[in-house]
């Protein structure tokens, strides 16, 4: 019984974070056709761990400037620097977590049946 309650709470939490991410971030990204997947991979390639990626993105979101981003200068020619969002730190953090969860490339890894 306790497990069911815990899972329910967790699912509700994820769903809630996911919908906040949609509203706070992805809706705009969709309109501007910002490649979310590509950005996440670039961060992952630079910081390796999800914790480091999370910290780096939060750092950028708190102070959105070119120097705080790892994206190349050409990226900003096509996609202008976003304005600072006036949201709570906790909410920002949850959004970033949900972002990482959504675009986690490692989850897509599978083992090939036939080996070479």
């Amino acid at each position: 019984m306790e497990k069911i309650v815990l899972w329910s709470l967790l699912s509700v939490g994820i769903f809630a974070s996911s919908s906040t991410l949609e509203n706070d971030c992805l809706s705009c990204h969709m309109m501007q056709k910002i490649p979310n997947d590509l950005i996440y991979r670039r961060y992952l390639m630079t910081y390796s761990t999800k914790e480091n990626v999370e910290d780096a993105i939060i750092k950028y979101l708190k102070n959105p400037q070119k120097v705080n981003s790892i994206m190349p200068p050409q990226f900003f020619l096509k996609f202008p620097i976003k304005k600072l969002q006036n949201i709570e730190d906790q909410r920002r953090k949850e959004n970033v977590k949900a972002y990482i969860e959504k675009f986690d490339v490692q989850k897509r890894l599978i083992l090939e049946e036939n080996s070479h």
């Binding site: 991979r41 390639m45 490339v105 897509r108 083992l111 090939e112 070479h116």
Partner: peptide, 12 residues
């Protein structure tokens, strides 16, 4: 890393 495939087959 650069693939857009849904399933990324790990080399084995």
């Amino acid at each position: 890393h650069n693939s857009n495939e849904k399933k990324l087959i790990y080399p084995r």
